[in-house]
């Protein structure tokens, strides 16, 4: 695994971009569709907050789009590290004395 790569600005932005897209598609609509939330804010206030929140998500999404490959690389890095550790011979597996 490339040391320090996890701290990359690219990774951060790529991740933010993914997270933003997921939040927008899978979470935001659900939350914003709840009638209690709309009622608590009142129609005008609701529309303003909704626009603001979705706009911010879209911006994070777009700004980090070109950095997304960094995330996939980091994910596979960690997964391969994991399987290396788990498979390291003589590392005290079950039943070994």
């Amino acid at each position: 695994m490339r040391e320090g790569s996890l701290f990359d600005e690219a990774l951060r932005r790529g991740l933010e971009s993914y997270v933003a897209e997921m939040l927008r598609i899978h979470v935001a609509e659900g939350l914003l569709a709840r009638p209690e939330i709309r009622a608590a804010l009142g129609p005008q206030h609701f529309e303003r907050v909704r626009a603001e929140v979705l706009d911010r998500l879209r911006r994070s999404e777009e700004e980090g789009r070109e950095a997304r490959p960094a995330v996939s690389t980091a994910v596979s890095d960690v997964l391969s590290l994991l399987s290396r550790i788990a498979g390291r011979p003589g590392s005290g597996g079950e039943g070994s004395p």
Partner: peptide, 17 residues
């Protein structure tokens, strides 16, 4: 509170950090 809640829950920067 509802506004702050929505903003925090939908804050991509915070979650990714």
């Amino acid at each position: 509170l509802t506004e702050v809640y929505l903003k925090r829950m939908l804050d991509a920067k915070k979650h990714s950090q």
